[in-house]
């Protein structure tokens, strides 16, 4: 089993949804599809620090679908955020985990406040084990300030009668788009 297959198996075991894309346009098409499948009231997409060109390329289509885009000041989004679109820095196949440097507040909030988090993971950043990126992790943590997140599946709880329920505080769903050839 290669890293992608392993990653997919592990992420799906914790209700993650994994697909491959080969352009960022596809990421936006995917996001529009997510909006179509869900009945969100205000249709808000948070995409802080996302690829600016891809975002502007997609802007017209998003507008046509009545999706409003926010890229900053997420904490003051009184109506909440429906979908958060971010990049992931690394994928860990062994556990189906995304590693995201979330030091920027708005990026962090996009992964926390949204109902559905869609993360784009460049294929080349897929590693087998966490130990394989120890140097990179240390490089982030040796900075003056950093907030580094390992995200494995959606937010979950089993606090009521040990029944699994998703989205207790964070996203109900986690979608991972593995960006091929990058």
């Amino acid at each position: 089993m290669n890293n992608y297959e392993k990653f997919k198996e592990k992420a799906e075991a914790v209700q993650g949804i994994v697909t491959k894309i080969n352009s960022l346009d596809q990421a936006f098409l995917y996001v529009e599809d997510v909006f179509k499948k869900n009945d969100f009231k205000n249709k808000t997409l948070a995409a802080p620090f996302f690829d600016e060109k891809a975002l502007s390329d997609a802007s017209e289509s998003l507008k046509n679908n009545k999706i409003s885009v926010v890229t900053k000041d997420l904490r003051n989004q009184k109506e909440g955020v429906d979908v958060g679109l971010t990049f992931a820095d690394f994928g860990i196949a062994e556990t189906g985990t995304l590693v995201i440097d979330s030091s920027k507040e708005d990026l962090r909030l996009a992964t926390m406040l949204s109902q559905i988090h869609v993360a784009v993971l460049p294929e080349s950043q897929m590693k087998e084990k966490t130990e394989d990126i120890e140097n990179e992790l240390n490089a982030v943590l040796s900075k003056d300030a950093a907030y580094l997140a390992f995200i494995t599946g959606a937010s979950r709880t089993a606090d009521i009668e040990r029944v699994l329920a998703l989205g207790v505080h964070g996203p109900f769903e986690l979608h991972i788009l593995v960006y091929e050839g990058v």
Binding site: K10, R75, T97, S103, A145, A146, Y147, F150, T152, G170
Partner: peptide
């Protein structure tokens, strides 16, 4: 603890991270 391979979140926090509710914009 729970038979999980890994929990949903593991967070590593160092220093005064960006925080817009603080007047100095840092935690």
């Amino acid at each position: 603890a729970t038979g999980q391979t890994l929990t949903s979140y593991v967070s590593w926090i160092t220093g005064q991270t960006e925080c817009f509710s603080h007047e100095e914009n840092k935690k």
